[in-house]
Amino acid sequence: MENRIILLVEDNPDDRELILRAFRKHTIGNPVVVAKDGAEALDLLMGPKAYDPAAIGFVLLDLKLPKVDGLEVLRRLRANERTKLIPVVILTSSKEDKDLIEGYRLGTNSYVQKPIDFNQFSEAVRQVGLYWLIVNVPPPS
């Protein structure tokens, strides 16, 4: 439980660095697997060498991604029997209605806009991590 993987799907290296910094800052020590685009994320989740879904604590999913965008990743994830129960938290710059509605419709578990202020950003990351790794009871494997 303690070592469940956090799958971070984020193409922007700055954001990747800031998110990892926030994890570090809040001493969340779970392994973080990074996918730099949607295709890579799908490969990691449903590819031949995919992680066991039960091993994944949650997916932190950006929406605007090269190759396959975040919402498409979510759709395929939910469409797949094996991966459809994996908790997904959308963490993105946008809070456009379109994204919010589509995200929830496709079955995201949570939607968080990235705050500009790093303190708030770091706080948001902390809360998400704690919640999905500790407070939330994951689906049975």
């Binding site: 700055d14 929406l63 605007k64 710059s93």
Partner: peptide, 22 residues
């Protein structure tokens, strides 16, 4: 444009703030 602005224009600002804080 809005969509792009919503996502892309904010990212650099976050970096600026985040790394300044770092």
């Amino acid at each position: 444009f809005s969509y792009s602005a919503s996502h892309d224009l904010r990212a650099p600002l976050r970096s600026m703030d985040g790394f300044s804080q770092a």
